[in-house]
């Protein structure tokens, strides 16, 4: 923090300069996910002509929808300073529910799928908020339980989805846009509105900023926590339904490892795991970055065995530049 020329110049000038620089750095940091996204697009475009085609864009959005829908819910959890690693398993349970009910209910299989997801989330919420089990441990346990349920009911065999009305509703294309993408974007707008405009959204952020303060200020912390886990569960239910529709089957392997991509998306978007900061737009950018990274490397023909290494390095670099460590203080 040395300003060698400060003795020569007029004393007021450097003060303004440094304040301006601080503001500029803060702004740069805030817009970093967007900048990073642009860099990714430029790099991959130069490596593959097909990358920037409309066709591929549509593919990216379709690939990213399941991740997006799950990440929308996870944003609330992470902004409140909790974590949920049972995401992938809830997606699998819901996809199975959709597959089992699609034949009789058709498109209305969305109801049981989302309900089951919400129920799984509710269980997580009760464990964390009422049982006071730390969210990492609680959802580590339910992750195994939910996955186990899927294995138990399917005995490992995939359940096919062939109902026309179901597939028409969730995996066909209208006006050139896949239905999954439409649903994903609509849910993003809903989640954004919930976060931005409701009291619930503010309460989530307050819990992340200071749970003890929130309790003593009369925020219904228990209720808010249960609600946010239910919200995530319901969104995972949607994600499971869309995934099932895309692959036309529910498998016991579905959604394995999804929670890691979800957490990566939220964090790369600039939301720290400590909570109290963040936004849904950040998460959307994060999802795009994570999805584009995989898609771009495939398009550019990067050795598949190398891809995971690059992915990890890029994610860590992004977070390293992205997060204002001074504001967070303790990193755990």
């Amino acid at each position: 923090m040395k300003t060698p020329s400060s003795g020569v110049k007029a004393p007021v000038q450097p003060v303004r300069d440094s304040a301006l620089r601080d503001r500029q750095i803060a702004m740069l940091r805030r817009s970093f996910p967007a900048i990073f996204l642009v860099i990714l697009v430029v790099v991959f475009t130069s490596m593959s002509q097909r990358f920037l085609s409309l066709d591929n864009l549509s593919t990216v959005l379709e690939q990213g929808t399941v991740l997006l829908v799950a990440s929308l819910g996870a944003s609330f959890i992470i902004m409140a300073g909790s974590i949920d690693i049972s995401v992938g398993s809830i997606v699998a349970v819901s996809a199975l529910t959709a597959a089992l009910t699609a034949d009789t209910l058709g498109a209305f299989a969305i109801v049981p799928a989302v309900l089951i997801g919400a129920l799984c989330g509710c269980l997580n919420g009760l464990l964390v908020a009422v049982g006071k089990v730390p969210s990492f441990v609680a959802t580590l346990g339910t992750q195994v339980v939910f996955r186990g349920l899927v294995l138990y009911f399917t005995k490992g065999a995939p359940v096919e989805i062939s109902n026309d009305s179901f597939l028409n509703a969730y995996s066909s294309i209208s006006f050139g846009i896949p239905h999954t993408v439409m649903i994903g974007l609509a849910l993003a707008v809903v989640a954004w509105s919930i976060f931005k405009f409701t009291v619930f959204g503010r309460e989530v952020l307050a819990i992340g900023g200071g749970e003890r303060v929130s309790i003593l200020t009369g925020i219904a912390v228990t209720r808010v926590k249960i609600k946010m886990f239910v919200l995530l569960g319901a969104l995972c239910g949607m994600a499971g339904l869309l995934q099932g529709a895309r692959t036309m089957a529910a498998t016991s392997q579905l959604g394995i490892g999804l929670e890691l991509d979800v957490i990566a998306s939220v964090v790369v978007g600039g939301t720290p795991l400590t909570g109290g900061l963040g936004s849904i737009t950040n998460t959307c950018l994060g999802v795009l970055i994570v999805t584009l990274l995989s898609n771009g490397m495939n398009m550019a023909g990067v050795d598949p065995y190398l891809q995971n290494i690059i992915k990890g390095v890029v994610l860590i670099t992004a977070v390293y530049i992205n997060i204002d460590r001074k504001k967070i203080g303790v990193i755990k």
Binding site: G209, L216, T217
Partner: peptide, 15 residues
């Protein structure tokens, strides 16, 4: 216990 220092004055006042 009193306030969330990283939040704005407004956020804390109406919490």
């Amino acid at each position: 216990e009193g306030l969330i220092v990283s939040f704005s004055v407004l956020d804390n006042l109406v919490m």
